[in-house]
């Protein structure tokens, strides 16, 4: 007999509830994978150590993409590193987030006219938060992280879903720039 008082939740609602609970855990325990490509990476040590102490936000460094939740792209990306970045990003377990550091990842920064460096990171992988500056302040970095947490709470950190939905678009951009993402050449066979 169906209860008249409580209408049972639909499967969708239940999933949504679980997702919200999960979001609480996810935003309070962001494990980072640091892809230290450029000079912005120098902002991470003060952020991690006693000056700003990101562990109080529940963040910490992790060793491999499988374990990590958030990918930090710290600075300019040459074509060679971009391949590895995409490979690494695809290995992360879902849900996954990306934080881009510095003007290099936003629009190319001072390397905007280099032949070897890409300009806009979000054409290749979805970026949830950008931290602007060349290089950004550590305060800005910390602010970026709290922003990401807020976005997770508001369910607006949807980059990984976007990567699934518009996968063709991302793949096309990647191929346009790189030719081939996973290279097969004599060094890799």
């Amino acid at each position: 007999m169906k209860s008249t008082k409580f209408s049972p939740m639909t499967q969708e609602q239940i999933d949504k509830k679980w997702w919200e609970i999960g979001n609480y855990f996810r935003r309070n325990s962001l494990w980072m994978l640091m892809y230290c490509t450029g000079c912005c990476a120098i902002e991470l040590p003060p952020a991690m150590t006693s000056a700003y102490d990101m562990e109080r936000l529940g963040m910490g460094p992790m060793a491999t993409p499988r374990q990590a939740d958030v990918l930090l792209v710290t600075g300019y990306l040459s074509l060679k590193t971009l391949r590895r970045l995409i490979y690494t990003y695809e290995q992360m377990s879902e849900p996954k987030y990306v934080v881009g550091f510095g003007s290099c990842t936003i629009n190319g920064g001072i390397y905007h006219d280099s032949h070897a460096v890409i300009n806009k990171l979000d054409q290749y992988i979805p970026v949830d938060v950008y931290v602007a500056g060349c290089m950004p302040n550590t305060e800005a970095v910390m602010n970026g992280f709290t922003d990401l947490m807020g976005m997770i709470k508001n369910k607006t950190a949807r980059g990984w879903l976007d990567y699934k939905e518009r996968n063709d678009w991302y793949k096309k951009n990647q191929l346009d720039s790189l030719g081939e993402v996973l290279v097969h050449d004599e060094f890799h066979e």
Binding site: F25, N28, S29, G58, P95
Partner: peptide, 10 residues
């Protein structure tokens, strides 16, 4: 939090 987060991931 860390452990439950891990359980919530795919």
């Amino acid at each position: 939090i860390d452990i439950f987060k891990l359980f919530s991931k795919r």
